[in-house]
Design a protein around this nucleic acid. Structure first.
Lengths: 201, 201
DNA sequence: CGCCGATCTTGTCGCTGTCAAGTTCATTTT
DNA sequence: AAAATGAACTTGACAGCGACAAGATCGGCG
């Protein structure tokens, strides 16, 4: 994990990446609401003002984390899809499962991406990463049938996102309390039922 | 709004209610991530430590605010329903519209309710208020058809909540950018389409 | 070699939440 | 009526926070 060789070089070498890693750990352990820039610096073993040089302020670091998160978010969906049957409905269901996987595996990152005002959506890189996620969703929905509309995309997105967000917040008690294996099965069935209705409308 | 008579009585009289009001204003203006207990005290015109006596700590105040918010959340849905046709589908669509109305009218409260770890869901009053909201949803869904399952409730909830959350976060660009009147019409159409499919499945 | 700019540290500011101790005041007790 | 009680609120302190300014270090280029 850490270069044991060089003791404490003044210049870190790749502090930016180290701060991103530390930032994600901080986020995962303390949650977005207790996130502290100084805590990130401590984790990375640098002074409290070091992050400023690479990210400007706390928002900058969170923006970078959100950007990276959106990319991995898409990858998580693709990973699910690679193990699923190739028919469009199965692929869409798998994408939804990946969407929810990511939310439950990285609850704080998910909140950062969708329910926080701290990342700056003025940053072009973040917008691009978020748009890529949306484009993928749109593509997967339109693969169902050629005449799928923007409204259909919105419905599918809302359904998937709502499920992910409610599970992530622990608000949907009946599902959140299930053991992971069973919950996953229930979620899959839920998605297949709902998305199936939309597909064959 | 304020008793003009007594100048600055040592005992406020109803500081608890005043703090709740100030807390909501603070939340609305600065958002949950910049929420400050001292800011609330300033708004209410009391010392920075006054809130502790009534709410313990910041989490206590936010818990109380979330509890109140869940009650008004249900009322907002009922208000929509009272103006809608009495058939079950129209009523369910109206409830969904009220759900989204509340989210857009009180974005910070909505986040506090669904996407924050700060309110303590150990507090029985909060759990009760949140459960009441869920019970209402369940009732409205089951009014559609007698054989509606818990899975159907989960689907309806996810769809509605996802739409509300994505709009609230400004993430669903295509909808969030519309002018309020048009957006409302689009949302209504969306809900009617999606919920109609579920109802007549 | 010498300089220069990027990288990182140190120090400081006002702000925050929480705790402890003091002050005020309404009510009850005697 | 006077005193005691305890709730409501204030004052003061502490550590931790984000941001800024100024200084220290160091790789690379002239």
């Amino acid at each position: 994990m850490k270069k044991a060789a060089a003791p404490q070089p003044y210049h870190h070498g790749d502090l930016r990446a180290a701060l991103l890693e530390a930032g994600e750990a901080e986020l995962a352990e303390r949650g977005i609401e207790a996130f502290s820039l100084r805590g990130v610096a401590r984790r990375a073993g640098v002074s409290h003002a070091a992050p400023a040089h690479h990210f400007g302020d706390a928002g900058g670091l969170l923006t970078a984390l959100a950007t990276e998160a959106f990319r991995r978010f898409v990858q998580r969906q693709q990973r699910r899809q690679s193990k699923a049957p190739p028919d469009p409905l199965s692929q869409l269901v798998a994408a939804g499962q990946g969407y929810i996987d990511f939310a439950l595996e990285h609850p704080a990152l998910f909140r950062l991406m969708f329910s926080s005002g701290r990342p700056s959506f003025d940053a072009p890189e973040l917008v691009e990463a978020a748009n890529a996620a949306f484009d993928k969703l749109e593509h997967d929905v339109k693969a169902l049938r050629p005449d799928m509309t923007i409204a259909d995309v919105q419905i599918v997105w809302s359904l998937t996102h709502g499920l992910a967000d409610l599970l992530n917040g622990g608000r949907m008690k009946s599902l959140a309390d299930q053991r992971p294996a069973q919950r996953e099965a229930t979620v899959a069935a839920l998605l297949r039922t709902a998305l199936g209705q939309i597909a064959t409308r």
